[in-house]
Simulated assay, not measured.
Amino acid sequence: MSIEKIKPYHQPEREPAKRQVKVRVKKNKWISKGEKYLYSIISGTVLCACAYVISFSSATDTLNRDIETLEGKVEQQQSVNNSLTYDVEQLRNPERILNVAKKHGLDIEQSQVKQATAVSSK
């Protein structure tokens, strides 16, 4: 018998040591990087749109308040103007003018006082 034949029986051949390979299992992420990017852009756009709508609404509200204030001032001024117009009509009364003229020593002899309603410009 040869040594080669005995060797397998006598001395067991060692099998090469098996390496244990660590396998890492990749877990599927809930949201991928691309989706995160898209969601970030969309949410940023929505936030900007919300800010724009709020600022536009605020500006419109301020403008409406200013308009209401001005309308109140216009109505008040119209009331004052109407009151002054009435006073002007009272002051134009010919009888009142004659009374003021007599108080200041003016005499009117055989003439009639006429109210000038229109001024003609030629």
Rank of each mutant, 00 (worst) to 15 (best):
W30C: 02
E68H: 03
K73M: 05
R19K: 10
S57L: 07
E4T: 14
P12G: 07
I54T: 11
N93F: 04
Q20T: 15
P12C: 09
S121G: 03
E13F: 03
K5Y: 04
Q78I: 11
R96F: 11
E68N: 11
Y86I: 07
S58I: 15
R92N: 12
A17G: 11
L106F: 06
N82S: 14
N64E: 13
Q76R: 11
L84T: 04
Q77W: 02
K29L: 07
T60N: 07
D87C: 06
S121M: 05
V88Y: 13
V21L: 07
C50I: 15
I3W: 05
E109F: 01
K36Q: 11
K33T: 14
N64M: 05
S2T: 14
L84K: 02
P8D: 12
K27F: 02
K27G: 11
Q78K: 15
Y37G: 10
E13H: 04
E4S: 14
N81D: 06
N28K: 12
P8V: 13
K18I: 02
S43A: 15
Q112E: 09
S40N: 11
R92M: 12
Y9T: 08
L70P: 00
K33N: 07
V53L: 06
W30V: 06
S43D: 12
N64R: 06
H10T: 10
G34Q: 08
P8F: 02
A101W: 00
K103L: 04
K26S: 09
K26F: 01
Q115P: 01
N64Y: 04
V88R: 14
P8N: 12
S120L: 09
V100Q: 04
P8G: 05
S55M: 15
N64F: 00
V23C: 05
L84G: 01
L106A: 13
Q76I: 02
T85D: 03
K103S: 13
